[in-house]
Design a protein around this nucleic acid. Sequence first.
DNA 1: ATCGAACCTCCAAT
DNA 2: AATTGGAGGTTCG
Length: 297
Amino acid sequence: MVSINKYTLKSIHPYNLDETLYSGQSFKWVSLDISNDISDNWHQGIIDNRRVRLAQSKNNIYLWTAKKYADQDISTVSSYLRLDDDIEKIYLAISKSTYITSAIKKYRGLHLLRQPPWETLVTFICSANNNIPRIRQLVSAMSTKFGQKVTDTFGTFHLFPSSTALYNAGEESLRELGLGFRAKYVYAAAELDVNNIINVEKLVNKNYHESLDKLTHIPGVGDKIANCVLLFSLNKLEAFPVDVWIKRVLREVYIDATLPIPDSQIRPWAQKEFGEYAGYLNQYLFHNRRLFKSTIK
DNA sequence: ATCGAACCTCCAAT
DNA sequence: AATTGGAGGTTCG
């Protein structure tokens, strides 16, 4: 009989688990239809090689896992959720407009994640010219087909496939999963990683600009996707992905005829304007503007 | 240098 | 019921 328990991860800073897990940084969390003494709103996901269940009540994050793995999982989850970010200090640094202070107020506790670099890279290559349900579908299909099968106390599941697994899979079978033109790019990224030419896992030790340069040398990875990888997995809080939503909100709030900035200069302009935590500001701008889309396009 | 179009696929909106 | 347009972008001409 395996012992399963719920563990508490105390957050000394405000945290909003729901907003964080579904804020377009990760595409593999699912909401469970299970309720128990702790919560009726559990989320299940995989971090590295471990499947975990998380819930929140007040300022406590709850981890539901086998006792045997508790220590390891607490440490993995704390890092993944960035529980140690001094978010109040970050709020002070990025509160540069009434628009952003109102977004912070609405989504207080929304955090960036610290995800595994390789799967973040592949996921965001798959995000190009694509919609969220399909990104989720592709990530799931790649895992089921090419990821290592694992059994835990909750049943069986598949890890996100390694670069070797995707390299061995080949471009054609990735195309068969529905990746389309992105199959070529994922395959190329796997090949560069396998041959030790560009290892995204190793970029965590490099600075922002060197990592950006390396990432954008991967086919299918431009400035936007590279900045997503830098921000969501490589711990570069100054990274600033400029997508259609960010462009929209910046033009609505900051940039206009009196401050004309060409598209190509938006990212460096924003980093200079918003500073070392520009990436956190980006996440709040994005989240706020995207959830507003049903009202105004 | 800069700027559209094309790119795979799926599906919601005509 | 068939067709078109677009989706959290990048590349190619």
